[in-house]
C-alpha cells in the first residue's frame, strides 16, 4: 500500500522545504545588490566579482584544493588496503586493535582528533602547514573510505576471485585484474567522500594548519564569526553548485557502472 496520503505529502513537503529553503535563501541573496544581506535591492553579480578579486580567498581555495586532492588520494589507497585486510585478511596479530582504529575516528569528536594530532606534530617537531593538514585529513578520511569499500568487498561473489587464483593468478594479479575493477565504484565514491570531507573540515584543519597555511573553511569561519556577508553568500553558492553538479553526475555514472557490472557478473557465473 504505497499511497501518498495527505499526511505523508505534508511531511515530505515541509521536510524538504526545511532542508532546502535555508540554502535557497543563501543562493538568492548572493545575487543581492545591497550590502545588507536581508533586504533585497535588485539583482547583481558584484559579490562574485569581489570574491574573485579577493586574493586571500583565492589563496585559501588553492590550499584547500591541494590538501583535498592529496589527502583524498592517499586516503583512498590506504583505506582500500585497510578494507581489503579487514574483509579478506583472515587472522593476523592485532586484528581487533586494527578494526578498532578503523572505526574509532568515525565517532571521535573533531576537537579531540585535531588536538591530539597537533600535540603529536609539536612533540616530534614537525612544522605545521599544508603537509600536516594532509596527514591529518588522510588519517580520518581513510577510515570512511575503508567503510565504504569494505561494504562492497563483503557483498560481491568471492568465487570469481577464487577462479582467478585457480587459473594461476597470483593474489596480487587477482586483486588487480578481478577485485579492483569490481570494487571500483566503491573506491571512487570513497575518494569523493574523502575529498568532500577534506574540503569541508574546519576543526581539524584549524588545529593542524599553523599560521602558514589557511584553508577555505578556516577563512570562511573567521569572517562569518563577525556576521553574515554577501561575499560569503557568493562563495557558498559556488560551493553548493559544484557539489550539486558533482554528486548528481557521480550518482548517474555509478548507477550505470553498477548496472553494467551486475550484468557482467551474472554472465560470468552463468556462461
Amino acid at each position: 500500500m504505497r499511497r501518498l496520503t495527505w499526511f505523508n505529502a505534508t511531511s515530505l513537503t515541509l521536510g524538504f522545504a526545511f532542508l532546502y529553503l535555508p540554502m535557497l535563501i543563501l543562493i538568492v541573496f548572493s545575487f543581492n545588490a545591497s550590502k545588507l544581506v536581508t533586504v533585497w535591492a535588485g539583482f547583481s553579480t558584484q559579490w562574485y566579482g569581489e570574491l574573485l578579486r579577493n586574493e586571500a580567498f583565492l589563496d585559501a581555495a588553492w590550499v584547500t584544493l591541494k590538501v583535498g586532492l592529496a589527502s583524498s588520494t592517499l586516503a583512498t589507497v590506504l583505506g582500500t588496503m585497510a578494507a581489503y585486510v579487514m574483509v579478506r585478511g583472515g587472522r593476523f596479530f592485532g586484528r581487533t586493535l586494527f578494526s578498532g582504529m578503523i572505526y574509532a575516528p568515525l565517532v571521535m569528536p573533531e576537537v579531540i582528533t585535531g588536538l591530539s594530532l597537533l600535540l603529536l606534530f609539536i612533540s616530534i617537531g614537525l612544522d605545521r602547514g599544508v603537509f600536516t593538514i594532509v596527514l591529518a585529513h588522510t588519517t580520518f578520511s581513510m577510515c570512511y573510505v575503508s567503510v565504504v569499500v569494505s561494504s562492497r568487498l563483503v557483498s560481491f561473489d568471492r568465487s570469481i576471485e577464487e577462479a582467478a587464483l585457480d587459473l594461476g593468478c597470483t593474489p596480487f594479479d587477482a586483486f588487480r585484474s578481478v577485485t579492483l575493477p569490481i570494487i571500483a565504484p566503491a573506491v571512487i565514491s570513497g575518494w569523493l567522500l574523502a575529498f568532500t570531507l577534506s574540503l569541508d573540515d574546519l576543526v581539524i584543519a584549524s588545529f593542524t594548519a599553523g599560521p602558514s597555511a589557511t584553508t577555505l573553511p578556516i577563512k570562511i569561519f573567521s569572517s562569518v564569526r563577525l556576521g553574515v556577508s554577501p561575499e560569503i553568500n557568493a562563495l557558498s553558492t559556488i560551493m553548493i553548485g559544484i557539489v550539486a553538479v558533482g554528486v548528481i553526475t557521480a550518482s548517474l555514472v555509478s548507477k550505470r557502472m553498477i548496472a553494467r557490472q551486475a550484468r557482467d557478473e551474472q554472465q560470468a557465473v552463468h556462461s
Binding site: P22, I25, V37, I220, V228, M239
Partner: peptide, 17 residues
C-alpha cells in the same frame, strides 16, 4: 545531497535566517 554540501555553510545559512 545536503550531507555533501559544506557543514559550515549549512550552519552559516541559519545566521541570516
Amino acid at each position: 545531497l545536503p550531507f555533501w554540501t559544506s557543514f559550515l555553510i549549512r550552519v552559516y545559512a541559519w545566521m541570516g535566517i
